[in-house]
Amino acid sequence: MANKYLHIPRLRRVYVWEMPVRFYHWLNALVIVVLIITGFYISNPLGLLSHFDASHQYTMGWFRFLHFIAAYLFFFNFIFRLYWGFVGNKFANWKQFIPTSGRFFREMWTVFKIDILMLKKNGKEQDHLSIGHNAMAGFIYFLTFIAFLVQCLTGFGLYAGMSSWWLPKLFAWVPAILGGDILTRQIHHWSMWFFILFAVIHVYLVFYHDYVEGRGEMSSMGGGFKFIEEEMFEKNAHQTPNPEKTAK
């Protein structure tokens, strides 16, 4: 009976995002949203109409407090993800993010043609290139990590002046190099827009991949699994840079 349906590709379950990556992802998404909202308030506070005296409210104070709490979580979470890029599974490995081979660039170009220009490859609309991130996504996350770094450097650089803890003080050189807090703060503000644009495109693309590929992209950040056609799996498995293999 089941033979009748053999032409339907079998899907193979692959554990791509380990628990720490998923935890990192959602904590990161949450704190970034908090940082953007509180950052907007800090940069341009709403004109609150209030009949209270200053002694009875602490609005800006709370927004800044939230911003700094989220900032610390963001920072340590980021450090943790960098660490996991060395000890995690191959899909989380740093090699997935930094273009180090011609293959990486070729794959980026193919992704660009197929997913953005909607061109066909060998008459086919889809080409299952990757199981974890595709090369383009990986590279965009690399840029995102650079934006994380910029935001941490400028943020803690600004914070250094108001803190007595050694950790933020380590960043005091940042405004000194940039020539003062005014510019540091503006860079901090400008790069916020990168995060906003990234979030829009990123969330859209997650939906897009889920819709077009039907491989469980959206749920992968929940349960950790993606589903790959058996034959594609066999064909492409050797192409995914595998740090465990190359190490041997």
Partner: peptide, 30 residues
Amino acid sequence: ADKLGEVALGVTVAAVAVHAVATNFGKSKT
């Protein structure tokens, strides 16, 4: 920066919308 950001956001959302529509044609077979 915020005015530019708002424009960039508008352009991004529009591009995403166009892409979403195009997907339904370009990837219709899949």
